[in-house]
Amino acid sequence: MGALVQANHGLRPWLTITGTPVGKLLQEDLVANLKSKQGSIIVILTTDIPLSPGQLERLARHASIGISKSGSPGSNGKGDIFFAFSTANEMDLPQLSGPWRHMTTLNKNLLDPVYMATVEAVDEVNG
């Protein structure tokens, strides 16, 4: 699981790193003093696990759990974008592949470890 996170959001008191609320400990003059929850979050997830489009959509939703581990509950700000894709199923060009396509996908009952890997990857990159 790979994650790319652009995190420009939240308030200083919300910042938590490895469970420690470091944002509350930062002095006012060390960091820009933002009084509102400005910014946005963009997360791009990539995997080589064969997942269906619906499974990838659910995977992208789990990125918000990884973001929340750093202390942000989210906000009604400029917007958040979460995107996931898999490199597992190579497809021929549509005009060369004929009318039918075949995909391999992971059994949905085996997705819990994939969701956990997603949360951990996003938390690692964001925190």
Rank of each mutant, 00 (worst) to 15 (best):
Gly39Arg: 06
Asp112Thr: 09
Val122Leu: 02
Pro113Thr: 08
Leu56Met: 04
Ile65Lys: 11
Pro13Gln: 00
Ala84Gln: 00
Glu124Val: 10
Gly74Asn: 00
Thr105Asp: 04
Gly71Pro: 07
Val119Asp: 01
Ser68Asp: 09
Lys78Glu: 11
Gly98Lys: 07
Pro13Glu: 01
Gly77Asp: 07
Lys24Thr: 07
Ser36Asn: 12
Gln55Asn: 03
Leu45Val: 11
Ser64Gly: 07
Lys78Gly: 10
Ser68Ala: 15
Leu96Arg: 01
Ser52Asp: 00
Ile67Asn: 00
Gln55Gly: 00
Pro21Trp: 01
Met1Phe: 09
Ala60Cys: 07
Ile17Val: 13
Val114Glu: 00
Leu106Arg: 03
Leu93Ile: 14
Ile17Arg: 08
Val122Glu: 00
Thr104Arg: 14
Ala60Met: 04
Thr105Tyr: 13
Asn8Ile: 01
Arg61His: 06
Thr46His: 05
Ala3Leu: 07
Ser64Asp: 12
Ser64Gln: 09
Asn76Cys: 11
Gly127His: 08
Val22Trp: 02
Asn126Tyr: 11
Thr105Leu: 13
Ala117His: 00
Leu93His: 12
Ala63Met: 02
Pro99Glu: 06
Val31Leu: 15
Glu57Met: 12
Gly2Tyr: 12
Val122Tyr: 03
Leu26Glu: 09
Pro53Val: 05
Asn107Pro: 05
Gly74Val: 08
Ala117Tyr: 03
Glu57Arg: 11
Ile81Glu: 08
Gln38Glu: 14
Leu110Asp: 09
Lys69Glu: 13
